[in-house]
Design a protein around this nucleic acid. Structure first.
Lengths: 205, 205
DNA sequence: GTCTATAATCAGATAGAC
DNA sequence: GTCTATCTGATTATAGAC
């Protein structure tokens, strides 16, 4: 009896979790495809295959949908950082992370949010999961940046925070889409190009 | 009689032009502050100090308002390119242009448009003034890029088109706003930082 | 050309039955 | 929790008087 009840609850919880995962996958894809403003809640509901009202039982607002997607990618990023081989140099780790980020974007799995929307910002900053993930990722990247600067592989005259922002910005770099639209290069070539301009610069060496 | 009529027409035309200039100035500022989606036509009308219906007598749609602002900045860019001292190197010219672009952005005078909005894209691409300006600017920058590569100051292994896109992307680089929000640097310092990461790269030299 | 007033539409969010 | 049907507000665009 007790066991049965527990099992039933667990099963229901699993179903709930599975549905929310499905929602987040759809939101993630739509955010990557069209961005926050162009994505509509009707669209999300239709793609998940449930009614809009049901969606609002899971997430209280459109902003919270986007936040859930961001938490999802942040978790993926944290796993990626953790699984990086320990014997690579800080510079290589930074390059690997940026490459991974751009692969995500070119694969249509990187949600894009408007940086100006204030209600979205507020929702994101009120989301502890998101903020903790962001801080943990930033701390880890910050360590590697300073280590790379200390050992002379990254320009020590640049403030670490500026480098961190520059790395983050590759996740929404329009150069990726422009080059992809041009159709002259494969995804791998595009990523190598942008990696080169990012770390080596435009000037000849 | 003839002279009087001509003068009157000219005067009316001048007034019309002055009002449209005022509209474009407002649109330009609002596009820089909030972006296309967040900017409302009501807001534009209120800031100009005219009724919304009057606005629609001058520009047939919100997209056309944005297009007019883009034509305006494109004209400014063309003037800037033309007025660059002839004796500077191609690399210096490119740096100067990027610097000017970022100054515009930090001054809140660089309109920001969503790259996904298709109706806006259509309006822009149907606008001959905008397209001609864009092509002329791109041709000029392309010349300088190839010249800089030929004389070994810019990495010759990068496709010129990738370099062009990378330069254009500085006009909407989020690193600028992030660093500005941090409050640790002056506008000049921020621009120097981003110029350095853009041309010299993150790696030590 | 400028205005007031209003249409028309769309999107985020909710009510209430089941 | 899920549904259908609806509300509410915001926003683009226009009608029609002056």
């Amino acid at each position: 009896m007790q066991t049965s009840a527990v099992t039933k609850i667990s099963f229901k919880t699993q179903m709930l979790q599975a549905r929310e995962d499905a929602i987040i996958r759809v939101v993630n894809r739509l955010l990557a495809e069209k961005g926050f403003d162009a994505m509509t809640v009707d669209e999300v509901a239709a793609n998940v295959g449930i009614a809009k009202a049901s969606l609002y039982k899971h997430f209280p607002s459109k902003e919270d949908l986007a936040a859930a997607a961001m938490v999802h990618v942040m978790r993926r990023a944290q796993r990626y950082l953790k699984d990086l081989p320990a014997n690579t140099s800080p510079l290589e780790k930074l390059r690997d992370v940026v490459r991974w980020t751009m692969e995500l974007k070119l694969a249509g799995e990187m949600p894009s949010l408007p940086s100006q929307n204030s209600s979205l910002r507020a929702t994101l900053m009120a989301n502890a999961d998101y903020m903790n993930g962001l801080i943990e990722v930033s701390d880890q990247l910050g360590e590697w940046i300073e280590a790379a600067q200390a050992q002379g592989s990254v320009n020590p005259h640049l403030p670490a925070i500026a480098i961190l922002y520059t790395l983050y910005a590759r996740a929404c770099d329009p150069v990726l889409e422009f080059l992809k639209m041009g159709g002259q290069h494969t995804d791998v070539e595009i990523i190598d190009l942008v990696l080169s301009t990012c770390f080596d610069g435009l000037n000849a060496r």
